[in-house]
Nucleic acid binder design. Structure first.
Length: 402
DNA sequence: GTCAATTCACATGAAAGAGACCACGGTCTAGTG
DNA sequence: CTAGACCGTGGTCTCTTTCATGTGAATTGACGA
C-alpha cells in the first residue's frame, strides 16, 4: 500500500460507522452487573458466605460446572458485593481470587502459597526458598490480626492434576495452625468428576457445601446475549436471527455462554472490518472458523521445539499415505526430522507422552488400540482442519529451520 | 471348532537425573576514612 | 571498616531418561468332538 493509499485507508476507517459501542462488554474479563438465570446459585453462595460478615468462618464451597456456565462470574459478583458490605461495616474480610491455570501464577504448591503471601504484601521470590518457608511467611502475614480470609481457587482441577491433592490437604489444615485468622476456600472446577479422585479427607473438608452449575439452555443464552449485545452494539446492528443462531451454536456445545459471547464479538469485528453496517448471520460461521483457526495456530506457535517436530512428523506422515499412522511410524519420521534439523531426539517414551498431550490439545486424535498379535499402539489422526494445514506446515517449517 | 496360553508393540507409572533459575550466608577484595 | 563481588549450598521447577510393569486381542497350538 502506498503512502497515499494508507492515508486514505485510515481516513476511510474514521469515516466508517463503528458497529460497537463498547466492545469490552463481550470480552471474557467483563463482569456484568446482573447475571440472568443464576439467581438461585448466587443466593446459595451468599447464604453460605454471609457468616463471614460476623467474622465467623464460612463453610468451604465446592462449585462444579462446565466451562461458560457462569461459575466464575457468579462467585466474583457475590464476593465483590460481600467485600463492599464488609468494608462499610469495618469487618476484616479479605478475598483472594486465584486462577490456578492462567498465567503460571499458581500452578504449583510453591507458587500458589507464594502468590497468596504476595496478596498480603509479602515479597516472595519466584524460586529459591523452601516451600515450608513460604508457608510460614504466609502464616505470619495473615495471622497478625483477627480476620476472615476467603480464598477462591478457580480451575482447581488443573492445580491438582499438575501436582497432587496434598496442596489442598495442607490448605484445609491451615486453620488449625492459625490463632487469629480463619480461612475458607471456594474451589471452582470444570471437571464434574474431579472430586471423586480426591483423597477422602480432602474431599470432605473441601466440599462442606457443594454447588452445581447446570449448563444454560438455548433460550437462556439468547437472553444473556440480548442483554449484553444491547450494551455492546449500536441499536439495530444485529440482524434478526443472529442471536438465535449464536445461542443455538453454543447450546449445542454444552451451553457455553462464554463461547457464545466470543462468537458474537468476533462476528462483529469481522463485519466491521469488511465495512458492513450490520451483522448478518453468515458472519457467525466466519467467526467460528476464525476462532478455531486462531486457536490452533496460537497453540502450535507456543509449543516447544520438540513438540513442533513431533507435530511436523505427524503432518508429513499423514500427507504421505492415507492409512492411519501409529506411534512407531511417527517416531521413525520424528527421528529423521531431528537428524535433519540438528535437534536432539527424545526417547520414544517421551514422544508417546507428547502425542498424548497433542491429543489433549485437540490437534490430534490419538486412540489407544490393540492390534492383537501385532501389539498395542496409538492410532493417530490429524484433527487440524484441512483448510489451515498448509499454513501450519509453513509455520512449523519456519520454526524448525527446515 | 473351541479354548487357554502366548506374544507383540507399545501404553502407562514411578522414580530419579539434568540443568536452569534463585536465595542466603560466608568469605574475599578493594576502596574509604 | 564496609560495600560489593564471588563462591558454595540448598531449594524449586520443568523436561527427560531409565526401569518396570501393564494390556488387549490376533495368533498359536493342544485338545476333544
Amino acid at each position: 500500500m502506498s503512502e497515499k493509499g494508507l492515508n486514505n485507508f485510515f481516513e476511510e476507517y474514521l469515516k466508517k460507522e463503528p458497529l460497537f459501542i463498547n466492545k469490552s462488554v463481550l470480552q471474557s474479563a467483563y463482569t456484568p452487573d446482573e447475571i440472568p438465570h443464576r439467581d438461585d446459585q448466587i443466593k446459595q453462595i451468599a447464604n453460605i458466605l454471609a457468616p463471614a460478615l460476623r467474622v465467623e468462618r464460612p463453610s468451604n464451597i465446592f462449585i462444579y460446572g462446565k466451562t461458560g456456565t457462569g461459575k466464575t462470574v457468579c462467585v466474583r459478583h457475590t464476593t465483590k458485593k460481600l467485600e463492599q458490605v464488609a468494608k462499610q461495616n469495618n469487618v476484616n474480610l479479605k478475598i483472594v481470587y486465584l486462577n490456578c491455570k492462567l498465567s503460571k501464577v499458581a500452578d504449583t504448591e510453591y507458587r500458589l502459597i507464594a502468590q497468596l503471601a504476595r496478596e498480603f504484601g509479602k515479597e516472595i521470590p519466584s524460586t529459591g526458598l523452601p516451600t515450608s518457608e513460604v508457608y510460614s511467611i504466609f502464616y505470619k502475614a495473615i495471622d497478625t490480626e483477627k480476620n476472615v480470609i476467603l480464598i477462591i481457587l478457580d480451575e482447581i482441577d488443573q492445580l491438582v492434576s499438575r501436582t497432587s491433592d496434598e496442596i489442598l490437604y495442607n490448605l484445609t489444615r491451615i486453620n488449625s495452625e492459625l490463632k487469629n485468622s480463619q480461612i475458607a476456600i471456594i474451589g471452582i472446577s470444570n471437571d464434574l468428576v474431579f472430586a471423586d479422585n480426591l483423597d477422602p479427607r480432602v474431599k470432605s473438608s473441601l466440599s462442606e457445601e457443594e454447588l452445581v452449575f447446570p449448563p444454560y439452555n438455548a433460550l437462556q443464552i439468547q437472553d444473556i446475549l440480548k442483554k449484553r449485545s444491547s450494551k455492546a452494539f449500536k441499536e439495530g446492528v444485529l440482524e434478526t436471527g443472529v442471536i438465535e443462531k449464536c445461542a443455538a451454536y453454543a447450546a449445542k456445545d454444552h451451553g457455553d455462554a462464554r463461547r457464545a459471547l466470543e462468537l458474537l464479538r468476533v462476528a462483529g469485528e469481522l463485519a466491521e472490518r469488511s465495512g458492513e453496517t450490520n451483522i448478518e448471520v453468515n458472519y457467525l460461521d466466519m467467526a467460528e472458523e476464525k476462532i478455531e483457526k486462531d486457536r490452533v495456530i496460537d497453540t502450535i506457535k507456543t509449543q516447544p521445539h520438540q513438540f513442533k517436530a513431533t507435530l511436523y512428523a505427524a503432518l508429513t506422515l499423514d500427507k504421505g499415505k492415507k492409512s492411519t499412522l501409529f506411534t512407531g511410524d511417527l517416531y521413525e519420521v520424528y527421528k529423521e526430522i531431528c537428524a535433519k534439523t540438528g535437534l536432539r531426539s527424545l526417547t520414544q517414551r517421551r514422544v508417546s507422552d507428547i502425542i498424548a498431550e497433542f491429543d489433549m490439545l485437540g490437534l490430534i486424535n490419538a486412540k489407544v488400540i490393540s492390534k492383537g498379535r501385532y501389539g498395542r499402539t496409538r492410532e493417530i489422526n490429524m484433527a487440524i482442519p484441512q483448510s489451515i494445514e498448509p499454513k501450519i506446515k509453513e509455520i512449523l517449517v519456519k520454526d524448525l529451520g527446515l
